[in-house]
Design a protein around this nucleic acid. Sequence first.
DNA 1: CTGACTGCAAACCCTTTGCAGACCG
DNA 2: CGGTCTGCAAAGGGTTTGCAGTCAG
Lengths: 160, 160
Amino acid sequence: MNKVDRLTVDRRGERFKSAAAAAGVRLTHQRLEIFREVASSVEHPDAEAVLRSVRKRMPTLAIDTVYRTLWMLNDLGLITTLGPRRDSVRFDANLDRHHHYVCVRCGLTRDFESAELGVLRVPDAVASLGRVVETNVEVRGVCRRCAATEDKTVKRKKAR
Amino acid sequence: MNKVDRLTVDRRGERFKSAAAAAGVRLTHQRLEIFREVASSVEHPDAEAVLRSVRKRMPTLAIDTVYRTLWMLNDLGLITTLGPRRDSVRFDANLDRHHHYVCVRCGLTRDFESAELGVLRVPDAVASLGRVVETNVEVRGVCRRCAATEDKTVKRKKAR
DNA sequence: CTGACTGCAAACCCTTTGCAGACCG
DNA sequence: CGGTCTGCAAAGGGTTTGCAGTCAG
């Protein structure tokens, strides 16, 4: 229950190898181990968690290599980051039921309301995870301003 | 379009005053200004943005006061933080369409799938914000493990 | 008046960067 | 073998904390 099934991991692994080849990226020992770790975890680990886990097999691994590798995998489109892009914590004084539009490029976030989305039924399986307080929709996209500068190289200056 | 309407701000302000009174918290000049700022903004500002804005009226305000106040408002239930609670960036190797269950207490995050939630129609207003890449549901709740220790004081050790 | 709150400065912690040696292809 | 990648160490940047003076009630 803590691990992704073998088949899925293998499929992801293959995808990594071909993507790496296509991108002309070297397949190092550490990269494979790091990828294997994220690909087989269901916990959405952060860099520190990946480090702890992989270090059991590879004790010399450094945290900065983990970061570099994870962002590389992200750039190759093999993994994503969770939730809106965040340089810092952001606050929300709107306590009414609402949803969010989030620009994956710059982090711009806006509320929107929708009667139609007011009645979201979540699968029963969710109940086994814990109590549900609220459910809302996150629409991810590219905002107008960012779309206007789309041609520019995608830059992640500091995506913490 | 950049500001919340007057009526809403006033309503929120009243809520703050009564909540503060109920919680036995002092209504200082800086707290009022900080609250007014988040309550009237539609941008989901981070601490730095709040500081910049309030400093125009109150130049001596310090960043740590902003943080203390924002977390206090959060504890009083008057504002929330955006997206999953984050101590660090978390990665996701599941590229299939899926949704998230997020524990607002500890940050635990799990995927779930749902055919029913596969067809979410967002209001037309969203289109004016930008292009839509993907939409998914975020279910916020309290996970089993946290629910088990519910009685303990809610502690936010380092909720960046 | 007095305890809660603020501002200041320094500590903290996650993340990134510069560099020299190591290793893939 | 050459250029890419790793590990190390140190810098960077957002957030928190200890402390002494200040202010709300």
